[in-house]
Simulated assay, not measured.
Amino acid sequence: MTYTITTDLVKGYIPYFPYVENNFLITVVNYRGHDNKLNRLQGKLNRRIEELVDLVEETNDYINNIGDRNVCRREVIREIKGK
Rank of each mutant, 00 (worst) to 15 (best):
T4P: 00
D68V: 07
Y3E: 04
N39S: 14
E75Q: 14
I26S: 00
G12P: 00
N46R: 15
E50N: 11
I14V: 12
L52Y: 11
V28T: 11
L38G: 00
N36A: 11
Y16W: 02
Y62D: 12
Q42H: 10
R40A: 15
E51S: 10
G82E: 12
L25G: 00
E79K: 05
Y62L: 15
G12A: 10
L25S: 07
L41H: 08
I5V: 15
R47H: 09
K11T: 10
E50S: 13
N46P: 01
G33R: 07
N64C: 06
I80S: 06
D61H: 07
D8R: 12
N70G: 10
N36W: 08
F24N: 01
R69M: 13
N65I: 01
L9T: 10
G33W: 03
Y62T: 09
I26T: 08
P15H: 03
Y3Q: 05
P18I: 07
N64V: 04
C72S: 15
H34P: 01
E75V: 15
N64T: 11
I26M: 05
L41M: 11
R40K: 13
I26C: 06
I5M: 05
K44C: 10
V56M: 10
R48V: 09
E79R: 09
L38D: 01
V71I: 15
L45P: 01
D54R: 10
V53C: 06
K81T: 11
E51Q: 14
D35G: 01
N23S: 10
N65H: 08
V10D: 05
L52E: 14
Y31P: 06
N70S: 15
G82S: 08
V71C: 02
I14Q: 09
K37A: 09
V28N: 05
E79Y: 14
D35R: 11
V71T: 14
